[in-house]
């Protein structure tokens, strides 16, 4: 700061505090709602202070769910979401590491073509090719399976480009030294390149875990069996019925549970999260 103006500092903090309040308020409201009994909503206004039913509501959602709304216990859906987010993140990282390695450290016919095919995936988000992609997955018999939920999402141009950028910054001499030291391509990849990519892998994992967790449209399409519901899509089904039945407290308890894992990842791995976010957009 160049000069010291008290009113400006005051304004700065005011802006930030208002910003934080606006950002936090909807979640606060949801949390409050999740601590009340269902009768508390009959009066026509959402309470603003915590109620006494928190453990009861969360316990019920985690273990039982609401069968009338077709929603299984949240614990099962959380488990599904975790599995799917991890498989997607690990899968994307694994296949992107391999393809970036091929593109940077080898020369071979059709290298440029391969690069462009990967690049094209950037331009084809699920949302724009829903029906034919669904048809492919249905024909392969992958509906209602973890494979169907994850495999179609694990191609990643962004991750490939990130690793490619990183590999290009690894000094040529390192690979040459390893070759003189008797390391073949896969040994070099495992012994030298992977350990060097640790930070990038971790940062990318944070971003991709969130990406996998928040998927909605794809799970919605390929799962009809509630055993495979993810928490994000399960909530939507809950909420759709909550409007007719006053189950706000239970819906909001699930909302908080659905938000918590990825939000905690962002808060506790903030440094990696920021690095991942900024690097993938380079």
């Amino acid at each position: 700061m160049v000069e010291n103006r008290p009113w400006l500092s005051f304004l700065t903090h005011l802006v930030l505090i208002v910003g934080v309040v606006v950002v936090v308020f909807p979640v606060y409201l949801a949390f409050i709602a999740s601590t009340h009994g269902s009768g508390d909503f009959m009066r026509g206004l959402v309470p603003l202070l915590p109620g006494p039913h928190m453990l009861e509501n969360y316990g019920r959602m985690l273990t039982q769910g609401i069968s009338t709304a077709g929603a299984p216990p949240v614990s099962i859906m959380l488990m599904n979401s975790t599995i799917i987010a991890i498989v997607i993140a690990v899968g994307k990282i694994a296949i992107s590491l391999l393809s970036a390695y091929a593109i940077v450290f080898f020369k071979f016919p059709f290298r440029l073509l391969a690069f462009w095919i990967i690049f094209i995936t950037l331009m084809l988000p699920v949302e724009v090719r829903i029906i034919p992609t669904f048809a492919v997955v249905a024909n392969l018999g992958l509906l209602n399976s973890y494979v169907g939920l994850t495999l179609p999402l694990i191609a990643s141009a962004t991750a490939t480009f990130l690793f490619r950028q990183f590999f290009l910054t690894v000094p040529d001499e390192l690979m040459e030294a390893a070759r003189v030291d008797g390391a073949g391509p896969m040994k070099f990849f495992r012994d030298i390149l992977l350990p060097l990519s640790r930070t990038n892998i971790a940062a990318l994992f944070v971003i991709l875990f969130i990406y996998g967790w928040v998927q909605y449209l794809w799970p919605l399409l390929v799962t009809t069996d509630s055993r495979y519901y993810t928490v994000v899509m399960g909530i939507k089904r809950l909420a759709a019925t909550a409007d007719s039945e006053p189950l706000w407290n239970l819906v909001m308890a699930s909302v908080i549970l659905a938000m918590l894992p990825p939000v905690l990842v962002v808060i506790f791995m903030q440094r990696l999260f920021v690095k991942g976010l900024v690097d993938t957009e380079k």
């Binding site: 296949i95 091929a102 084809l124 992609t133 495999l151 391509p185």
Partner: peptide, 23 residues
């Protein structure tokens, strides 16, 4: 080897991206 390394990424891309888009 490079083709083997690229195979998983290209397979997923072709089956779940390029083919449906072409469809």
């Amino acid at each position: 080897l490079p083709y083997a390394l690229l195979a998983p990424q290209l397979a997923v891309t072709l089956i779940f991206f390029i083919w449906p888009a072409a469809q």
